[in-house]
Simulated assay, not measured.
Amino acid sequence: MTPLETIQHLLTQDKLEDALKLLILESPKFSSGFHIQTMQLNGRLSKDNNDKVSNVSDPLERDRIRYATLGLTQTLMGFPTVSGQVVATSADHLLNNKCYPFIDRIQFREFLKRQIHGNGAKMIFINGPSKSGMSYLENYLIHLSTLNSLFSVVRINAAVDLNGPEPFKGVSLAKLLGIELGLDLNLDTDELDQFKFTRFGIKLKEKLLANDTIPLIFIHDFHHLQATPDIAKFILKLADVFRQDFPKVIFLIAGMDYEKLPNWESSLRMHCSVYHIETIDRVNVEVCLDGIFDYYQPKILALGDSSITKTEYVNGMISRLIPDENNINLASVGYMISDHLMQLNN
Rank of each mutant, 00 (worst) to 15 (best):
M1E: 06
P3R: 03
I7W: 05
Q8K: 13
T12N: 10
K15S: 12
L22A: 11
L23G: 03
P28G: 09
F30K: 14
R44L: 07
L45I: 07
N49A: 02
N50M: 08
D51A: 10
N55D: 09
V56K: 14
S57P: 00
P59H: 14
R64F: 09
R66S: 14
R66D: 03
Y67L: 11
T69N: 04
L72T: 13
L72V: 13
Q74M: 12
T75I: 14
L76D: 06
L76F: 06
M77A: 12
F79R: 12
G84N: 05
T89Y: 11
N96Y: 04
Y100G: 00
F102A: 04
F108P: 01
R109V: 09
R109S: 02
E110H: 08
E110P: 00
L112C: 11
K113A: 07
I116S: 07
G118P: 00
G120S: 01
A121Q: 07
K122M: 01
M123A: 07
I124F: 02
I126G: 00
N127W: 01
S130G: 08
S130W: 08
G133Q: 11
M134L: 13
S135Y: 09
N139V: 06
H143E: 15
T146W: 02
L150D: 01
V153M: 06
V154R: 07
V154K: 12
V154P: 00
A158V: 06
P167L: 11
F168R: 15
L176G: 02
L177V: 09
L177K: 12
L183A: 04
L185H: 08
D188I: 13
L192F: 08
D193N: 09
Q194V: 13
Q194C: 05
K196P: 02
K196R: 13
F200R: 13
I202G: 07
L204R: 13
K205V: 10
K207F: 03
K207Q: 10
L208T: 02
H220Y: 04
Q226E: 10
I231G: 04
A232E: 08
I235K: 04
K237M: 09
D240S: 05
V241I: 14
V241G: 00
F242P: 00
P247L: 04
I250W: 15
M256N: 01
Y258D: 05
N263M: 14
R269C: 11
R269A: 07
H271D: 05
S273E: 03
H276S: 05
T279P: 01
T279Q: 11
R282G: 02
V283F: 08
V283N: 11
V287M: 11
C288A: 09
L289P: 02
G291K: 13
G291I: 05
G291H: 09
G291W: 04
I292W: 10
I292T: 13
F293A: 10
D294F: 12
Y295V: 13
L303S: 10
Y313M: 02
G316K: 10
G316N: 10
G316F: 08
S319P: 00
I322W: 13
D324K: 15
N326G: 12
N326P: 01
A331F: 03
Y335A: 10
M336L: 13
I337M: 08
S338H: 04
D339S: 08
M342E: 01
N346D: 02
